[in-house]
């Protein structure tokens, strides 16, 4: 069995047997869907839940990825990381294992959120739109999980990571196009939202909904992803304790 898959399987099994991590990770996006998607008095569209669902999907992947970085922190704190580093497989297989497991987690959670959104009245996606959505979420998840795992290498403990996590996730979400389209944004927010990687994922899914292929968004996300993963591999190869 490939070491990447061994590492991935280990974390997946731990996650499923842990239960609470799974439930807790679902709570926030679900709350957003209900309280924001259904309750917010919005004037620019009469079907806000359709508009906000791509944003909530991206948010689910974002929070899953940032929480996933904590896996590496725990491995380091509990001594697993040292054991893994002393094993023969190339060290970047630890990284790829984490990227894979975190992305899988993110995609599983987004699936549940998507089903939940449909139940709350969002218009159904066509099979092509679904496939496109999953491709975007997967690339986006790989980008974010590589970022989170690399940050986790540099931070010493869980508290610091939780702080870094909070510092990244909220601003990233609110400065994206998740909540509102660019034309109703305040002028100062628009340029920020347009370079926010979260917006690329969200806009990509929205463009899919109009029946077009979001080539620009997918390309930019892919390039970012390749860049960050290359950097992360470099960091992992050099890592010493």
């Amino acid at each position: 069995m490939n070491p990447i898959l061994v590492y991935c399987k280990r974390d997946l099994v731990r996650w499923f047997r842990g239960k609470w991590g799974f439930i807790a990770a679902m709570a926030m996006p679900a709350a957003w869907l209900i309280f924001v998607g259904l309750a917010l008095p919005i004037r620019f569209t009469d079907h806000y839940i359709d508009f906000v669902t791509p944003g909530i999907l991206a948010m689910t992947v974002l929070s899953a990825s940032l929480a996933g970085g904590g896996l590496l922190i725990l491995d380091r704190m509990l001594g697993f990381f040292n054991k893994f580093l002393a094993l023969p497989p190339p060290r970047e297989s630890i990284l790829f294992g984490k990227i894979l497991v975190i992305t899988i987690r993110g995609v599983i959670q987004s699936t549940i959120i998507l089903i939940f959104a449909f139940l709350l009245g969002a218009r159904l996606y066509s099979p092509t739109q679904l496939i496109g959505t999953y491709i975007i979420l997967f690339i986006f998840g790989a980008l974010l999980s590589a970022t989170a795992t690399t940050i986790a290498i540099y931070l010493d403990d869980h508290d610091q990571y939780a702080a870094a996590n909070a510092m990244i996730s909220m601003p990233l979400f609110f400065t994206s196009s998740a909540m509102m389209p660019y034309d109703v944004m305040p002028d100062w927010l628009e340029p920020i939202a347009k370079v926010n990687p979260l917006s690329y994922a969200i806009d990509g899914i929205r463009i899919l909904k109009t029946g077009e292929i979001p080539v620009t968004q997918i390309s930019i996300l892919s390039l970012l992803c390749i860049g960050v993963v290359t950097l992360a591999v470099h960091v992992f190869r050099k890592v010493k304790i």
Binding site: R10, V13, R14, L78, G79, N82, K83, A86
Partner: peptide
Amino acid sequence: ISYVPQDMAVDVRL
């Protein structure tokens, strides 16, 4: 080689 560090690190959920 094999290395067993000081911290007792076994996966308790496995």
